[in-house]
Structures are given as structure tokens and as C-alpha cells.
Simulated assay, not measured.
Amino acid sequence: MKKLKAAVQYECMTSFKFIWIFYAIQYAVVLLITLIVGISMGTFENLGTDVLEMNTLIYIGILGALGFKEDFKMLIQNGFTRRQIFTATLSMFCFISGIMAFVDTVVGNVIHHFNSGYSSLYSGIYGYDNIFMNWLWLFLLYVTLCNLLYLLMLIINKVGKTASIYLGVAAGGMVLLIIAVFKYVLSAEAVASMISFFMKSMGFMPDGTINCMFPVLTLAALAAIFGTGSYAIIRHTELK
């Protein structure tokens, strides 16, 4: 238990400081661009940005993609089990995602309060009615992306780069096949039913209302699936 606690603390604390570096750079860039554009145009009216969470998604994606190799090597060499390493990594994903979802939710709502034209990622889809659901949705979105990219990195390490390229090509072929099936094989009713199911999973009900719990449950299910896949692979993972 002490070793697991140490691994969790290591993963979370080593990533914590980079959050504020990320936000400092992001807001400095936004401010700089605003000043440059405003000065060049001679006015600061109608200037601004939208969906700052997209920057967080990029950062979170990098975290998920790079959260494997070096930390795994260091921890495995210091006697940590693969289960402990996976638990520590997942804890880090949740820890970082929770903080960044909170910051993005607060910043998005504050900016919208002073600039009604600003649209955040969540509010652009579901509105500003529920701040808690805003945070929860962002949190699960960030965790899901981390888990997905972590899973992809584990697969690449497991099968090797050459096999990964073949898998990527096969995945692209599967996408084209699915598109062809939707276009030429399935009936219009079947496609409409699938689209309706997808819209419901995102919270958009047939009667025009929005159910905010459905997208939360969808993201939680995806995060669990990707996390389970990662755990299944990391149990037999060796560094190459």
C-alpha cells in the first residue's frame, strides 16, 4: 500500500507543476495576440477567442501519449508492479483532468459573464445552465482522451512500430469500409436509427430536450473501456 501511495504521489506531483506553466503560456499567448490584433486594427471591440478548452485537449492528449515509457521504465526498475504503475498513471490522469476541467469551467463561465459572445466547449453544445455538469463532462472527456492515447501507446510498444503502421492502415481501411456500409448497404431506416442512438448518447433527445446525464455516462463508459484495455495490455508489457 505504501508503494502504491508513493507511485501515485510521484505521478501526480511531477505533473502538477506543468499545469500552471501550460495555463501561463496559454493566457500569455491569448493576451499577446489580442494586443497585436487590437493595435493593428485600432480597436479592441469584438476581439476575443472561443473554446479555449481545445488547447487543454491538446495538452491532455500529449500527457496521455507520453505518460507511459519513461515513468514505466523508472517505476518498474524500482520494484513497482504493473498494477501499481497502471493505478498511479490512471490516478494522475484523473488528478490532472479534474484540476484542468475545474479551471476551464471557471474561466469559461467567467469570460462568458463579461463577454456574452464567448462560447466554451461544453456551453457551445449544452449551454451554461449547469456548472457542475460542465466540470464533470470536461473531466470525463479529458480522462477518456488520456486513456485512449495511453492505450494506443501501449499497443505501439507491444506490437512494435512496423506492426503499428500496418494496424493504422487497417484502421483507416475499416473506417472507409464502415462509411461504405453506411452509404451502400444499410437502409435509410437503419442509418436513421443509428444516428438517433448516437444523438441520444450525446444527450439530444427526439423531443428536442437535452439530457445531460447521457453524455456523461457515454464518456464514463468509453473511459472505462479504454482503461480496461490499457490494463489488459500493461499486465504483459515489456519495454522495447
Rank of each mutant, 00 (worst) to 15 (best):
K2D: 04
A6G: 01
A7I: 06
V8W: 00
Y10S: 14
E11P: 02
C12L: 14
M13H: 06
M13F: 14
S15C: 14
F16E: 13
F16C: 13
F18C: 03
I21F: 03
F22S: 08
A24M: 03
A28W: 01
L32N: 03
I33Y: 06
T34L: 11
T34D: 09
I36W: 04
F44L: 07
T49R: 03
V51W: 01
V51H: 01
V51Y: 02
M54E: 00
N55F: 05
L57E: 00
Y59W: 11
I60G: 00
L63A: 06
L63W: 03
G64R: 05
G64S: 08
A65T: 14
L66Q: 13
G67D: 09
F68K: 13
F68R: 14
F68S: 14
F72C: 09
L75M: 15
Q77C: 14
T81V: 05
T81W: 01
T81H: 02
R83A: 12
R83V: 08
L90N: 06
S91C: 13
F93N: 05
F93I: 04
C94Q: 05
S97H: 07
V103G: 01
D104P: 02
D104E: 11
T105K: 01
V107F: 05
V110R: 01
H112L: 05
H113D: 09
F114Y: 13
F114A: 04
G117P: 02
Y118T: 04
S120L: 10
S120G: 14
L121F: 11
Y122I: 07
S123G: 15
G127L: 06
G127D: 04
D129V: 03
N130D: 13
I131K: 10
F132T: 13
W137C: 11
L140P: 00
T144I: 07
C146W: 02
L149G: 10
Y150M: 09
M153V: 15
M153R: 15
I156V: 15
T162M: 10
T162P: 02
S164I: 04
I165G: 05
I165S: 07
Y166T: 02
Y166P: 00
V169A: 11
A170F: 09
G172L: 06
L177W: 07
I178F: 10
A180T: 10
K183E: 13
A188V: 12
E189Q: 15
A190L: 15
I195D: 12
F198C: 15
M199K: 15
K200T: 12
F204R: 12
F204V: 05
F204A: 12
P206A: 06
P206T: 03
I210P: 06
C212H: 15
M213D: 06
P215M: 12
L217K: 11
A220V: 01
A223W: 04
A224W: 14
G227P: 01
S230P: 04
A232M: 12
I233Q: 00
R235K: 11
E238A: 03
L239E: 01
K240Y: 00
